[in-house]
């Protein structure tokens, strides 16, 4: 079924929307959640919650790219789930490593400083726009999808060492970008 037809089902409040979403994008969302949580059961829960969130959001929203709309929801839910698990000391997944890598980019930033999330998101998009396609794609596979380095390497036909090098250089660029835009000192 086309994305447009699935979105139409959401607008019609037809519960087939959830079944069709799961049929088409269940595996995709599951993989995103599992990257972050490293637990099939937790990932499954997040994917099920994804359809419920989508049900509540559409309408009024009409996603431009349905697959990525689901991806963002799954990513956010998985992140929240990860925080719960971390608080319970019940697990440490790829996300912990990813977050540690991102920590390098913010250096000695004041952790209590209030950050305007929307403005920071726009700043990240300006940063992404300045990267070349390969750098940008590797960066997003790692820091949006939390993919292991080996998976990114396989995806793009690179060696793992190359991926690590690209990520390292891109993190340095991000740090410089955030300094330039006044987010960190």
């Amino acid at each position: 079924m086309t994305d447009e037809a699935i979105i139409e089902l959401y607008f019609l409040r037809n519960e087939d929307a959830i079944r069709e979403s799961d049929t088409k994008y269940g595996a995709y969302c599951h993989a995103i959640a599992e990257n972050i949580l490293k637990s099939g059961a937790d990932a499954e829960e997040c994917v099920n919650d994804t359809w419920m969130r989508a049900w509540l959001a559409i309408p009024p929203q009409r996603p431009r790219v349905l697959k990525l709309f689901f991806a963002r929801i799954t990513r956010n839910l998985s992140f929240n789930r990860h925080r719960e698990l971390t608080a319970d000391k019940r697990g440490r997944g790829e996300l912990d490593v990813v977050l540690d890598e991102l920590e390098y980019c913010i250096g000695t930033s004041d952790v209590d400083e209030h950050i305007e999330a929307e403005a920071l998101g726009e700043s990240i998009n300006r940063f992404l726009a300045a990267l070349d396609v390969r750098e940008r794609s590797v960066f997003l596979r790692r820091y949006f999808y939390a993919e292991p380095i080996g998976v990114i390497a396989a995806r793009y036909g690179l060696r793992s060492g190359n991926v690590s090098t690209i990520l390292s250089r891109t993190r340095k660029k991000l740090r410089a970008h955030l300094q330039r835009e006044g987010y960190i000192v």
Partner: peptide
């Protein structure tokens, strides 16, 4: 800024870049 803020900000990456990462 916390590292979680940065993670969330990357979550705002434009669709076109995410799609591009799948196409490449």
């Amino acid at each position: 800024m916390k590292k979680e803020d940065l993670w969330n900000a990357v979550g705002e990456a434009d669709d076109i870049y995410l799609k591009e990462s799948e196409e490449l």
